[in-house]
Design a protein around this nucleic acid. Structure first.
Length: 281
DNA sequence: GAGAGTGTTGTAAC
DNA sequence: GGTTACAACACTCT
């Protein structure tokens, strides 16, 4: 159930091992999980793997791509006879036997390698798209949080136009990409801003602090390999450790690291939201 | 056993 | 247009 740092780590791990390998066969176990014409990429080599927002993009010659979104529970698990490189959180029992009952798509690669797409909840997908289609899709999204385009001026301009709670705005992909629930909660705590504040009520210096905090927690997330919350068992060495650095997420009733206040859990926009009412105002 | 909750996001409806 | 509610699905936890 990855956020941007998790996806970034998947791409970094996956790129080196699948680049140069050819797609020899594609087995689709769930029609919903694979869209587009598989034929368009069969026999083609994967040139590289990249990320934008939480999309994973496999580049092929001839302007073809497989674009993927993991949504809540998607994972890529790469197996080449001896090594296994997991994506997402390959920690539960159901990823040990492959293909498992949660394997939705299986990409057979040259060199006897296999890339499994597992997705418990079947929200995630793989899609064969030409370059212009990928670009069109990317165009709907705001800049990634960890890029220079995500500037104070940009964010201030966007926030000025909405009275939605700042946490909702921060997680809005059309404004800025890559801040999921966990990191939004933590960034707001570090910045000392209540998630409930209307976005357009923030001062410029508060926006600056929030942006800085968000970049900081995302960077830490990337460095620590992402957060693995629920079934954290270090099965293959790929589970992340950001969960050990959480500021407020999942810490209801515990003490705030900033001020010692008690962390509360509320519901905001249908999402579990953790914050310290004492120092986040 | 029923019901709520889960790290995402697109769509429909207000 | 802005904003909210819900759906997609399968599992775990209370």
């Amino acid at each position: 159930m990855p956020e941007l740092p998790e996806v970034e780590n998947i791409v970094r791990k996956l790129g080196p091992v699948v680049s140069g390998k050819t797609i020899e066969d594609i087995t689709v176990f769930r029609d919903k999980s694979f869209q587009g014409e598989a034929d368009l990429v069969l026999g083609l080599p994967i040139e590289s793997v990249s990320r934008r927002a939480k999309f994973i993009r496999f580049h092929f010659p001839g302007n073809q791509n497989i674009l993927s979104h993991l949504k809540m529970t998607g994972q890529f698990i790469y197996v080449d006879n001896e090594n296994r490189v997991g994506g997402g959180h390959p920690t539960a029992d159901w990823v040990k036997e492959l293909p498992s009952r949660h394997t939705r798509v299986q990409l057979s690669l040259s060199g006897n390698a296999t890339l499994f797409f597992n997705d418990q909840r079947v929200f995630g997908w793989l899609r064969v798209l030409a370059d212009p289609e990928v670009e069109a899709l990317y165009g709907k999204y705001g800049p990634d949080i960890n890029t220079p385009a995500a500037s104070i001026e940009y964010l201030a301009n966007k926030f000025a136009r909405t009275s939605r709670p700042v946490k909702i705005a921060l997680m809005d992909n059309s404004i800025i990409c890559g801040v999921g629930n966990i990191y939004a909660c933590d960034a707001l705590n570090l910045a000392g801003i209540s998630p409930l504040r209307p976005a357009n009520s923030l001062s410029l210096s508060e926006i600056e602090k929030l942006l800085q905090s968000a970049k900081q927690v995302i960077d830490l997330g990337i460095k620590t390999g992402g957060a693995t919350i629920d079934n954290y068992v270090n099965l293959d060495g790929f589970a992340g450790s950001y969960q050990n650095h959480l500021q407020v997420y999942g810490r209801e009733g515990e003490k705030c690291y900033q001020c010692g206040g008690v962390i509360e859990k509320i519901k905001l926009g249908g999402r579990g939201t953790y914050y310290c009412p004492h120092c986040q105002v």
